[in-house]
Design a protein around this nucleic acid. Sequence first.
DNA 1: AATGAATGAGGATTCATTCAT
DNA 2: AATGAATGAATCCTCATTCAT
Lengths: 203, 203, 203, 203
Amino acid sequence: MKDSLEQFGQDTKSRIFLTAAELFSTHGYERVSIRQICEAVGVGKPTLYYYFKDKETLLEELIDFSRQLGEKLLEEFVESQTQYLERFYGIIKTQQAFVKRYPNFVRFFIVLNIFSLPERIRQKVVAIQQERFNFVRTFFLQGQEQGMVPAELDVDLLTTSFLGTVNLMIVLEIFHPEWQVFSDKKMQDLFNLWKDRILNQNS
Amino acid sequence: MKDSLEQFGQDTKSRIFLTAAELFSTHGYERVSIRQICEAVGVGKPTLYYYFKDKETLLEELIDFSRQLGEKLLEEFVESQTQYLERFYGIIKTQQAFVKRYPNFVRFFIVLNIFSLPERIRQKVVAIQQERFNFVRTFFLQGQEQGMVPAELDVDLLTTSFLGTVNLMIVLEIFHPEWQVFSDKKMQDLFNLWKDRILNQNS
Amino acid sequence: MKDSLEQFGQDTKSRIFLTAAELFSTHGYERVSIRQICEAVGVGKPTLYYYFKDKETLLEELIDFSRQLGEKLLEEFVESQTQYLERFYGIIKTQQAFVKRYPNFVRFFIVLNIFSLPERIRQKVVAIQQERFNFVRTFFLQGQEQGMVPAELDVDLLTTSFLGTVNLMIVLEIFHPEWQVFSDKKMQDLFNLWKDRILNQNS
Amino acid sequence: MKDSLEQFGQDTKSRIFLTAAELFSTHGYERVSIRQICEAVGVGKPTLYYYFKDKETLLEELIDFSRQLGEKLLEEFVESQTQYLERFYGIIKTQQAFVKRYPNFVRFFIVLNIFSLPERIRQKVVAIQQERFNFVRTFFLQGQEQGMVPAELDVDLLTTSFLGTVNLMIVLEIFHPEWQVFSDKKMQDLFNLWKDRILNQNS
DNA sequence: AATGAATGAGGATTCATTCAT
DNA sequence: AATGAATGAATCCTCATTCAT
């Protein structure tokens, strides 16, 4: 579908792809018309339909693509680590990298969270969120098994707290980029808060 | 406009109001057409326009109303408390009460967070979020002054963590009501996590 | 219907009347909505319908009223004169007086000339124009009988020339009031042109 | 856009164009709905919007086109003449030719004169009228310089008289085609009236 | 791989008008 | 003499989509 990330962005299909991501993330799925996308790309509407069955499919492929990006980053920052806390820090760095490298796609993905979407897509998005939730949840669960996370803390609560915090940070980054929510310092602070206070064994 | 909350919901305007809140929060602002609202209420389109200048204004009044509801709850649960930790618990209870009492409006309000919205409205929503952020931020700041909150913690981080957690809980409540995210027990867990680990002085 | 012109303009009906004349003449019949009229007058829509059966009737009464105004002026300036050339000058003065005294109604009436109108009204307006045409035509015909107008000139041509000139002057007055098309001097010039050159016997 | 006048009227755009001219001139701009035009042409509404941005733009292009027609005729009948009186006669013939060749567009154009129009268009029409006024005015001015027009006559008055007469003739032609206002004979009469009486040097 | 032209369905909004009070 | 509330029909316009080329 899109070969490799390197040579991405040259051909017509990629240009439609990127433009759609940008427009959707800026104005929302409903507010962006096929015409707008085509005009921004500089092609006729039938061209878009040549590459994508319909608007919904375009959105779907965009979602799949975003997820792939996310997974690549997870591998890079988390899977490569072996120590528990370092893996935890990797998760945080993954978010930061996502925001810095693919701002449009992050934006796009966040916008999807609650969005007004075709039902089929809606479910897909919910499934992805679920997956993300479970990933983190499992991570904390393993932490408890390994004695790295206090056993008395509810895993769901931890997961909700962590993901909620990160989500809001992304939203803040989108609406207040000048706050520099994803600076290295803030990442350290976040990490320390969890390491020293929440994940720490002595209460 | 809506006199008292008690006798609310009888007249045509209120019915339009409530129906719109429900539909917007379920399908999103863009996806709900004036016709849908009118059909659901059982009136003609001009009737809606008799009460609301246009779709955007309807949305705006809905937002203002939601905020008023929120403020009433804050008074009830927070302003009435004098002890710092009790006030903190009050903030948590406010969220719970919001979700339980006005599920439609909460849903509606959360959906607005990221939504595709007319620009003017968008700014209004951002302003409200800002206000909410500042309210919590100020609360933690006062906590530091009173020695109730560790001075070495970054107030912005605390605020983001708290609000992010609560936001995600609301989202979860909306999409997974069976998880009972707002049960009294979960509220207690959340409170304890903050009291014992985050706000606690011994690091 | 409207008693006398003196005490005109006080009651609700008169206010609707005058406001409608002003709005119609400024924006055209189609472009003015019942709502606009009512808002400008400061009454509710049913009030307007209490006085006028419908929008079309309001327009019709306005037309009848305008014609009455015109006839009153004709009496004043023409019927009172006995000499042919003085009567001719009276016709010119009538136009001037119309423009000066009832600018809204002149405007209104001119706007009707070609306007997009309900068919029934359209015919009425055409009939009035016809009447006006015939009035002037008859005047020139009498002039020829009395030897005051050269017999070799075509009466229709004279009528068309005279009315066309006056009509255009009114249009110019509406769109370029600063040109002072209806100054006494210009009226004199117009009169002299006709007296010395067109109506004069020596060719 | 419309290439040459010869092969005009075949394609969809031309058909929309001509139909709109006819309908606007018959019922007025406001009274003709997009739907009516489309039905008369036999296409769907989006097709019209494919060719014309909106109703206003359609009207505007119609106006521009009409003016072009007029200018072509002016060239044909006036610019080709060298003698002053022949040029004057050419101006008259131009009007006649306009009426005979493009009755729909004349009708359309005259109807614009007073019409209820969007403000932007209104100004455009006024500008065109102004231009037309100036053209004739300049013509008489040159006549005075060349000694062909009595110096003591006011140029504005002459212009108003001439254009007013012609305008009314066009209106009469529209509403009373049976009067044959634009017969060759009537044109001659008009020309003679001006030549012998108004433009003539002996007062 | 891309286009110009066309479509049916639906969008928000406003119209003149009327009912019960 | 006047009003608040309601209506059906119409307005302009845009949507996602497709055909033949």
